[in-house]
Nucleic acid binder design. Structure first.
Length: 916
RNA sequence: GCGGAUGUGGCGUAAUGGCAGCCGCGCCAGACUUAGGAUCUGGUGCCGAGAGGCGUGGGGGUUCGAGUCCCUUCAUCCGCACCA
């Protein structure tokens, strides 16, 4: 009888669940190892074969570490707050909680079938009150903290209040200077909000009218929402934000200490966007006001031909001359109504307007016109730039468009056509620049900054592209922000009032007055029955910003994580997930980790030591070709003779591009009477690589594979597809190779139905095969090269089959080393070998190098690098002896063709190369 | 524009600077057979009848020897993008 994977897999999955096999030890003397997957958002579509790719890899690693004697934490949970469940709720009226529960149940069922070694007792769901209680709690800590630049750490806001209370501190309020104690409660609150790490402020937000909510920068792609693809506009709104910018420098610097892929680190560096430069003030002519610009090229100050303000800049209305007022107002209206998408779409289109006002050049005293242009971003730097058209591409384009003068003040080291292009490089000598004349650019930058600082015109400054993270969403299905308002002052709840539960609402839509769905809650949903709660909820990434900590101590009702658990588990040793979270989740989780570390609540400042991004699994769509509007379909190879329409066909009724015609006829009612033009008696479908999606009929579900071939087969095949980090299309046709391998592995231990194990000692060649494989598998796993492992197992089993080897001494270690990859069959074989303890905690076999030592090597003998023949020599021979031996060979003489070799290279255990 | 990644048979891929194509899929031939999506054996980079030649996106270089290292160029994918 063949290997019955259905029975065996079910049996061991039940065994692991019953025995809680994968529960880590509480008080362990073993070294710890924490393997984490990015937890999924449980969507209604269920898992497709792409989802488990990373989970399989991490599971192999976790299982390997257990075999290596580590106490392994390998948990799983659900990121269960989010938009899709809410959109579905809006459409159907069904509570998102119900949809979420159903989806989670489906996910769990699918995950269970694959045989993962998760400790399900630690499952977290971000939408569960006992979890989001602590998300709210962390929010309160953020609210109660400020970032002290002197200690370079977050501290309790009380230390700031102490500073403020010091006699000398004065605050400008409505034009009056007051001491802190003299401020009203509201004034104190407003002042502190400017420092709290969670704060309320008027902010330019990405507003998405269709979704009825604001979005974070990384939730907006190309000016439309990432989810749904709806237009996004800029809007000024009172919003909760998190002061992630306080951590910009640390988020940047600490990247050097973590083992993450270079592409993710680089994406984060770009996103943080540190740039060092200087601020510089320009006095406005006939005014007491000044315009402060930020520039990274203060050396070009003598080349300034105009100053540009962002349309939203505060001074715009103040400085515009009456003559220019109409034009400026028109332009501002234009710029305001232009959506982000439009603005980004025609970046090349130059727009702007002259204000009529001038600034005075700080060094030359000359008049310089002030322009407005939307190429200057309000949110970056000071929202104002000094424009040097000859040495900045954007200023160059603007100056050309509006015919503004350009002044060359750097001589490039090579020929340069200043009519065609600006010269932006930081190389060359300064000219026409007063005290900077003759200096190289880099020296000029240093010099000019010192002069600027000396004259108090500005100072050296660092800017970041990173913005504070907008933390409120005008949506229902998220964590309520634990804030209430008393006389218009935002106050956080007391810890003992948590969790602030999501209230019931009649509809999941904004109110008629445009307030978020939570405003629909009954009037009894009030703090102490009277104060309104905040109506925004937290964004989707709130719960995922700290979940790795909760797994360490998932049921703690007193703390978000206990000191003991946090000290033992530290942080994630191996984190596996998709690269799409590069600047979202992976930045926020680093931020929260640093914050919690500052407060002394956890011992680590980074969430994950090592991060691996698994590649995307794309779908391979299949097409049938319908002739015109008929019900007749022509096979792919013959389609050029007809006028056809390609139609997606369900890939599950296509095998190696051959259509199952009977299945096609019942797939859709209208296909019942379909006719076909075949080639070689088959209908061949066309194919194309596309994103795996329902609408393209190319979704392959892991359930189907597990049902037909087994979980071990799915696991091995997903790994066999190629390097983990590489994206690749899913093609089920190759799976038979892996399926055959599993059967072959089974047969190695059996003779017919019966187990057939020999107790005889193994021979040297047999030992060599298995030890070579042990060494290779350990090396592969430690290097995350799972695809090559599968091929090594195949080689090993093929070789042992050839030798008809069924010796315990060989087959026992084989069962252990394959267990991380194919745990079900490994458990079964291990059990049949007579072990009562499962294979999950067996000891990974040690490599005995002595079995791998060869006594001789068959040297390829090459002439000018071309291999001509092989000659075996004992490895004890020296290079000189081999050289001598080779020269005596008849073959050598033949290829020498009577010539004398110029040189003979002998590389021990490698090659002989004769240079003629 | 900037940054990251990837280019090897019909396909997925493999190769500490040392025999390019391991392991599979597919294909070809054969064995067995109650004909099949089973199992087993052999073959399979390209050109060539053969000897042999050519081959890792293209071009150059380093080296006795390069898929691998260096320079340059092209193509594809991904991320960021008026960030002063």
């Amino acid at each position: 009888m063949e290997y019955n994977f259905r029975e065996v897999e079910k049996k061991w999955q039940a065994y692991w669940a019953k025995n809680k096999t994968f529960k880590p030890e509480e008080k362990s003397t073993k070294p710890k190892y924490y393997v984490l997957d990015m937890f999924p958002y449980p969507s209604g579509a269920g898992l497709h074969v792409g989802h488990p790719l990373g989970y399989i890899a991490s599971d192999i690693f976790a299982r390997y570490k257990r075999l290596k004697g580590f106490n392994v934490l390998h948990p799983m949970g659900y990121d269960s707050f989010g938009l899709p469940a809410e959109q579905y709720a809006i459409q159907t009226g069904q509570h998102p909680e119900i949809t979420t529960k159903t989806n989670i149940a489906r996910y769990r069922e699918q995950l269970d079938k694959i045989g993962f070694s998760f400790d399900w007792d630690r499952e977290v769901r971000t939408s569960n009150p006992d979890y989001y209680k602590w998300t709210q709690w962390i929010f309160i800590q953020l609210f109660n903290s400020w970032y002290n630049p002197e200690t370079n750490k977050a501290e309790n806001i009380s230390t700031l209040i102490e500073k403020f209370k010091v006699q000398s501190s004065k605050f400008q309020v409505g034009g009056v200077e007051k001491k802190y104690a003299e401020l009203s409660e509201k004034e104190q609150s407003d002042l502190l909000l400017e420092h709290r790490l969670a704060y309320l402020s008027d902010t330019m937000v990405n507003w998405c009218p269709q979704l009825g909510t604001v979005l974070a920068n990384e939730e907006v792609k190309d000016g439309v929402s990432e989810r749904g693809g709806y237009p996004v506009e800029r809007k000024l709104m009172k919003q909760w934000s998190l002061r992630i910018t306080a951590y910009a420098d640390r988020l940047l610097n600490d990247l050097d200490g973590i083992d993450w892929t270079e592409s993710i680190k680089e994406a984060q560096r770009n996103w943080i966007g540190k740039s060092e430069g200087t601020s510089l003030k320009f006095k406005i002519e006939n005014s007491t006001s000044e315009i402060e610009v930020f520039t990274t090229r203060p050396d070009t100050v003598f080349g300034v031909s105009f100053v540009t303000l962002a349309p939203e800049h505060d001074l715009v209305s103040q400085i515009t001359t009456p003559a220019q007022k109409t034009a400026v107002d028109e332009y501002i209206t234009f710029a305001k109504n232009r959506s982000e998408r439009e603005r980004m779409a025609d970046v090349k289109k130059i727009t702007g307007v002259f204000t009529g006002a001038f600034v005075i050049h700080p060094f030359t005293g000359k008049q310089i016109p002030i322009w407005i242009g939307d190429y200057v971003l309000a949110g970056y730097g000071t929202g104002a730039v000094m424009a040097v058209p000859s040495h900045d591409t954007r200023d160059f384009a603007f100056a050309n468009h509006f015919s503004i003068d350009k002044k060359i003040i750097i001589t490039p080291p090579t020929e340069w056509d200043f009519e065609k292009n600006s010269y932006d490089e930081k190389e060359g000598k300064l000219i026409d620049s007063d005290f900077l004349n003759g200096l190289e650019v880099k020296a000029a930058i240093k010099k000019v900054i010192s002069v600027i600082e000396e004259k108090e015109l500005g100072k050296g400054k660092t800017n970041f592209r990173l913005r504070d993270a907008i933390f409120g969403r005008q949506r229902y299905w998220g964590e309520p922000i634990p804030v209430y308002y008393e006389n218009g002052i935002p106050k956080v709840l007391d810890e003992k009032e948590l969790p602030l539960l999501l209230p019931e609402v009649d509809k999941y839509l904004p109110t008629e007055t445009g307030e978020p769905p939570l405003a629909r809650a009954s009037s009894s949903w009030r703090k102490d029955g009277k104060h309104e709660y905040e109506y925004s909820t937290m964004p989707g990434w709130a719960g995922s910003s700290w979940y790795f900590l909760r797994y360490m101590d998932a049921h703690n009702e007193k703390e978000f994580v206990s000191k003991e658990a946090a000290n033992y588990w530290q942080n994630v040793d191996l984190y596996i997930g998709g690269a799409e979270h590069a600047t979202g989740h992976l930045l926020y989780v680093r931020f929260w980790t640093k914050f919690l570390n500052d407060l002394g609540l956890i011992p680590v400042s980074e969430p994950a030591k090592k991060l691996i991004n698994q590649g995307m699994i794309q779908g391979v769509s299949n097409f049938v070709y319908r002739i015109g509007t008929s019900n007749k379909y022509v096979s792919s190879g013959l389609k050029k003779d007809y006028d056809t329409t390609p139609l997606h066909v369900d890939v599950n009724i296509v095998n190696n591009n051959v259509l199952d015609i009977e299945a096609f006829k019942i797939w859709r009612e209208e296909n019942k009477n379909a006719e076909f033009i075949l080639e070689d008696g088959k209908y061949i479908c066309g194919s194309e690589v596309e994103k795996m999606s329902k609408s393209k009929w190319n979704v392959v579900s892991p359930d189907v594979i597990v049902e037909q071939q087994g979980a071990d087969c799915l696991r091995l095949y997903e790994m066999f597809l190629g390097p983990l980090e590489q994206s690749k299309p899913w093609n089920t046709s190759g799976i038979s190779g892996v399926s055959n391998f599993i059967r072959k592995l089974w047969r190695l231990y059996h003779n017919g139905d019966a187990l057939n194990i020999s107790e005889e000692p193994a021979t040297k060649p047999e030992l060599k095969i298995v030890h070579k494989t042990i060494k290779k598998i350990a090396h592969d796993i430690e290097n995350f090269s799972f695809n090559t492992s599968v091929s090594s197992f195949m080689i090993c089993v093929n070789e042992l089959t050839d030798l008809k080897c069924n010796k315990r001494e060989i087959l026992e270690p084989l069962a252990i080393i394959i267990a991380p990859y194919a745990p079900h069959i490994a458990e079964e074989l291990w059990n049949k070998l007579g072990h009562t303890e499962g294979v999950s905690y067996a000891k990974f076999p040690e490599v005995n190098e002595s079995y791998l030592v060869e006594s001789a090597f068959s040297y390829p003998v090459s002439f000018n690098g071309k291999t001509r023949f092989f000659q075996e020599y004992d490895l004890s021979l020296t290079k000189e002896q081999i050289e001598k031996e080779v020269m005596t060979l008849e073959q050598t003489q033949k290829y020498l063709e009577g010539k004398t070799p110029k040189k003979i290279i002998v590389v021990h255990n490698k090659i002989v190369n004769i240079v003629i």
